[in-house]
Design a protein around this nucleic acid. Structure first.
Lengths: 230, 230
DNA sequence: GTATTTATTTCGTGC
DNA sequence: GCACGAAGTAAATAC
């Protein structure tokens, strides 16, 4: 778990003519030039030129402490002692902005996207399959996909990018619960993942759960591109 | 060679409430929040929260093109077609700044530097050692240093900052090849690194490879320290 | 917790 | 231009 950013400390943007020295695992020097200095609420300091994409010319990662002694700003790593020394010659712009806590990135090449693709192409599970719903609610959390097979039998699908034992355990818990519902029981279980670990497969088969290896590219190929943002 | 930044295009700093979608090798989504959008002269766009150090939440690397259609900013990669869609809800700050061309980072202390220092001070390996050449070519790649010891026996040196097992494997392959050459065989092997992992050391010794821990500061001591900050 | 593998890796170097 | 290795790799995952 990454430490929560201190929301009351604003991000600080400084445009300045400066030179920079770094001493740590390596030594490095930046001659004088106008650069962007980005000081984040997490304490990190990054010195950017207007090229090399998102990567700074030099930086210090948290946990670190910035001490400004006149025009000499020293950023020292709290643990390793690595130091970044920024010598400010002229400040051309400075502003501070409160960003607040970020909800963070939702990566989707992962489970959620696989879930959507599989729901759209439910017959990947077998001919005659029909989707009941995604995120089918249960008392212990939502099942990724609930479907009915060609015979009308309920099928609970747990989707993972990489199928491991805990995913099988999770699906087992859902199946135990769903099978208590007379409107659903008996419920088949399908464990679907891009890659299923041998141990997980053994456990699944032992519990009567079927395994399905998902071909992400193939699923994406059948996708209707007109319905997507990209 | 990276394309020269277009100096007349200023870096652009935007603080905005926005949501972001990315579609490329993976799909990703950022829910609405206040973030820093950094648009550099090289065309790159980076969306930062005020944590996770220098790494943006999401970004697009050059060469790419930003097209602003009202509040929807689409950054499309010119070659792969990957797209970053930033939906702007509110702009809280915007400024542009001309940085000019950056003289760039002068690095010091990586493998290449260790190699140079050791080649210059080849007697670190033992009295009477002579350098044959750096980057001595073989069919499977160049050996970092080839030398002769005081008895004229060939010595192949593999240099790493951190000595791990794969470095020993690499040197082993070189030695196997070099020892087939009657002009060189028998060839001694030396595995030199600032830090050698115990497993790597055991493997090296087992294969008759000598280990040498490099003292970077001592090697550098022969260098003129007055020109350095650290 | 440590060790190993991945990455929208990025970045440099040699061919 | 492409293949390969290194990175102040960092971050996620296996054990």
């Amino acid at each position: 778990m990454r430490p929560a950013p201190v929301a009351c400390v604003p991000v600080r943007l400084v445009i300045a003519r400066c030179s920079v020295d770094y001493g740590g695992r390596l030594s490095a020097h930046l001659p004088s030039a106008i650069r962007l200095i980005l000081i984040k609420a997490d304490g990190s300091v990054a010195v950017h030129s207007d090229d090399r994409a998102y990567k700074p010319l030099n930086w210090m990662s948290p946990p670190c402490t910035l001490i400004a002694d006149g025009p000499q700003w020293t950023v020292r790593h709290d643990k390793t002692g690595d130091a970044l020394v920024i010598t400010i010659e002229e400040i051309l712009h400075e502003s501070r902005h409160k960003l607040g806590v970020d909800p963070g990135l939702q990566k989707d090449g992962v489970e959620a996207h696989l879930q959507r693709l599989l729901a759209e192409q439910i017959e990947t599970l077998g001919g005659g399959f029909r989707l009941v719903r995604r995120e089918f609610p249960t008392a212990i959390g939502p099942v990724d996909i609930l479907a009915r097979d060609a015979n009308g039998v309920a099928v609970a699908v747990e989707i993972k990018r990489r199928g491991e034992i805990d995913g099988v355990e999770q699906l087992t818990r859902y199946l135990g619960l769903l099978n208590r519902d007379p409107l659903l029981a008996p419920v088949r279980g399908v464990f679907a993942a891009q890659e299923i670990k041998p141990q997980a497969r053994v456990l699944a088969v032992d519990r009567g759960i079927e395994c399905l290896t998902l071909d992400y590219d193939a699923l994406r190929g059948f996708d209707d591109p007109s319905t997507r943002l990209f």
